[in-house]
Computed example of a mutant assay.
Amino acid sequence: MTVPKVGIRLPPCAPAGHLVRTVRRAEELGFDQAWFPDSQLLWRDVFTTLTAAALGTERIGLGTAVTNLVTRHPAVLASAARSVAELAPGRLTLGLGVGNSSVGPIGLRPSTGAEMRSGFAQLRALLNGEDWDFGGTVSRLREPLPVPLYMAASGPRNLRLAGEIADGVVLLSGVSPEPLAGASARVREGADAARRGRVPLVASAFCAVTDDVERAARRLKPICASIAQTGGARALALSGIELDVPDRVDGVYPDLVHAEDWDRAVEICSRWVSDEAATAFARAFCLFGTAGEIRTRLRELGDGGVGGVYLQHVGSYDLPEELIETVGRDVLPALREDG
């Protein structure tokens, strides 16, 4: 039996002191990793947050899930990552994505595959102390420090690219067996094409420890609608969830996944996502259920080749303190004993 590492997503939505206490509590309860998203208009700066977390903890792994190469130049990212890694030796993972919630609110476009490939090459070279030609100006990073580079991906092309260029992949397809297997296969294709070995996988999953999945699942409606809206309708259909969500949904700011008024977003998305569909989504794609059910799913993920799982609560502007407590108390101790 293989037990995956268990991480928690912590949006930088609170003052540093509050956030550090939360990370420290996750460390005390046995979480392996704390992942911080990066979106400059939604939250506090992710590297300032990581610095505070690094100074306030001793063991827990720290990472970005995720930053991007649009609002942050690769040279700036390399310096920031190296600086945090010095404070938390061996604990930092730099996760990168195309930039959705960072670029959309300021009218920029996400990174293309070619831009991701180039950015990864620049970052890796700089963090390894190699020279890089910036359009005729050759420079290098003083006192470099290598940092693992992970790529978040969901679509087939980006999954293959991640398998080709990244040190690890954050899978954004949830934990439903068929979509997860398909995503893992695309990563392997990319790794095989590049003649690389096995690429570590981290699966993201919304999580709630509850004995009333139907009630808790209603809050997932904006997440479910967003997946259907952005190319995930086929993956949902594999689990019997048929949705037809319009390309544009008015009345939600800044977007469905990061809605400031979550109750309003749930109400709006109820037009397309029924209670039954939300429950099916919670059971198939998320880790919603009793502590025992969640432990079983985590073991299955580990046995299926997933090396890490990072848990998310529903919401972007409060810390997942309740989730940390319930998972830390009711899930992790028995899971570790089994492992």
Score class of each variant (00 low, 15 high):
S204H: 12
G292N: 03
F285D: 08
S101D: 15
R297E: 09
S83R: 04
D275V: 05
D38L: 09
A80G: 02
G174Q: 02
G113K: 04
L161N: 06
G136Y: 04
A166K: 00
L50C: 13
V245H: 03
T22I: 11
G182W: 10
L126W: 04
V273T: 09
F288I: 04
D261S: 07
P89Y: 10
L335D: 13
A278I: 07
R198E: 15
E276C: 09
P156Y: 11
G56A: 06
R160V: 14
N128R: 15
V331R: 04
A52G: 05
G251A: 02
R336C: 06
L108F: 00
R140G: 10
S154T: 15
I294A: 00
D32P: 01
A191D: 09
L123N: 02
T51F: 07
D330P: 01
L236H: 03
T71E: 10
G197N: 09
P320M: 07
L92E: 09
V213S: 06
E300M: 07
F47G: 05
P156L: 12
T51L: 05
E322S: 12
T279Y: 01
Q40M: 14
V147M: 14
R142T: 14
P200F: 10
V20C: 14
R25Y: 04
L236A: 01
A278V: 13
R248S: 10
L311M: 11
A85V: 05
G129M: 11
P200M: 08
E214C: 02
E164I: 05
G7P: 12
V66E: 03
L42N: 10
W43P: 03
D261W: 04
P148W: 12
G136E: 08
L62E: 14
T326M: 02
S102V: 00
I324V: 15
R82L: 00
V252R: 01
T112Q: 10
L108K: 05
G90T: 10
M1L: 13
P11N: 15
L55R: 12
V169T: 12
L145F: 08
S184R: 15
C224L: 14
A282H: 04
A75W: 08
Y253H: 15
A277I: 00
F134M: 06
G63F: 08
R329A: 15
D167A: 13
L108C: 03
E276Q: 06
V66N: 00
E164W: 06
S118G: 02
R59N: 13
I223N: 05
A114S: 12
R218Q: 12
